[in-house]
Design a protein around this nucleic acid. Structure first.
Lengths: 224, 224
DNA sequence: CGTGATATTAATCGTTTGATTAATATGTCA
DNA sequence: TGACATATTAATCAAACGATTAATATCACG
């Protein structure tokens, strides 16, 4: 016998819920949007999927963010916001000239601490036609990369680096050494058993900075 | 006055076309599928788009390849086939132990010569949940990476490399130095004015191999 | 208390997508 | 020359998608 209006199971009727005044639905949407969009890409994830993961309906996306792209933008803003802010803070604080090793290790630690960052870089920066690539490049790569070049040029002119070193190429090499081990982790963890957790991260960081300075060759001199 | 059945413009009626016996429609589909899928990703490109670019209809995709995924698989097969074949040829040919520099430069030249390869790597290998990632990893990264490790281990035991060098980490560094400059080219070309055409490629190759051997530090000894 | 702002569900709309089919025209070969 | 294989277009289908709306329930405040 079907009851009139009291559906007994989890089915809920429309209407504002009782408890929370805090925007927990909005936060849940952002959280699951980050997890899903960064894992599978923007086009591969539907608004219904995100809403279901967050325990709500796709209409809430329209309510809080306007549309799917609005949710994506808000998610990215929240994700890279802290990094852009800390970058600005560094620039304004009189720019205490950072040392090479500190810069590299700091950058790597940032990638290791936020495991979703490499995926974001792949989807947003490396991927052709990544949404918001413009913004990401301007606010992030466009400032970090020239800073790297400047540090290298200064160290070279100071005599600490080879005189014939091209700072631009060296910056690209440094960024490659710092970033690629993390964005390629899904592959290297399988084909090489690689990992970057805790102790292994320290080994990677030491190895990378030393390789950049000294290379892999044996002995103090050069060979052949 | 609308004519009865003779639509005068380019509109064509069904039926087998007159000339070609060669499968030029199939080839055109593969060609434009590669361009579009590698540029925008599998999910972002519709079968209608590919068909229109190839000057035909989406029914031809069904006719020649079964479905969208079949077209994608065939495109990838055609794209990476030559590389897998040459890899097998190298393995079977008694494995003439390759030198480090040759391996690195050869790998980089491969990326420079086929400009769509970096995009393929981003979409298929680095991207979480990339279709055919399994196959690509097994046939490509899963063979190239261990080969790299083996070469490094041999050179280290031979005394050419530092005794305390971890071959696994060194292999990851070498791959980073070789691959990342190419996959990050869409970014570095904008923020650093970087390029890898002709003469610039030679400079990059020389710089990279030398940095891997000797590092960036000045002088023959070490510092601090 | 009651009225408007807020938050939520369920239902639905129009579009696009991948896939398929019927019709049609050419090639091939006995 | 007729019959079957091949290749193509146009039309269409069901499903999924993004987006929107109407209904509904609670909250905040006078």
């Amino acid at each position: 016998m079907p009851r009139k209006s009291a559906t007994p199971k989890t089915a809920r009727r429309p209407g504002r819920p009782v408890g929370g005044g805090d925007a927990e639905v909005r936060a849940a949407l952002l959280e699951h949007a980050r997890a899903l969009f960064l894992k599978h890409g923007f086009a591969d994830v539907s608004t219904r999927q995100v809403a279901a993961a967050a325990g709500t309906t796709s209409a809430m996306i329209h309510y809080y963010f306007g549309d799917k792209l609005g949710l994506y933008r808000a998610m990215l803003e929240e994700a890279i916001g802290p990094f852009v802010a800390s970058l600005q803070r560094l620039e304004q604080a009189g720019a205490p000239p950072p040392d090479l090793e500190g810069l590299m290790v700091g950058y790597m630690r940032m990638l290791a601490t936020n495991p979703w960052l490499p995926a974001l870089i792949v989807h947003e920066v490396l991927d052709e036609g990544g949404r918001l690539r413009e913004q990401f490049v301007e606010q992030f790569a466009g400032r970090l990369a020239p800073a790297f070049v400047e540090v290298l040029r200064r160290e070279r002119d100071r005599g600490a680096l080879r005189a014939d070193l091209d700072p631009r190429l060296a910056a690209i090499s440094a960024l490659s050494l710092c970033i690629f081990p993390f964005v390629s982790l899904p592959v290297t963890s399988r084909v090489l058993g690689f990992s970057v957790t805790g102790q292994e991260f320290e080994r990677l960081a030491r190895h990378t900075t030393r390789l950049f300075r000294e290379g892999v060759a044996a002995g103090p001199g050069r060979q052949s």
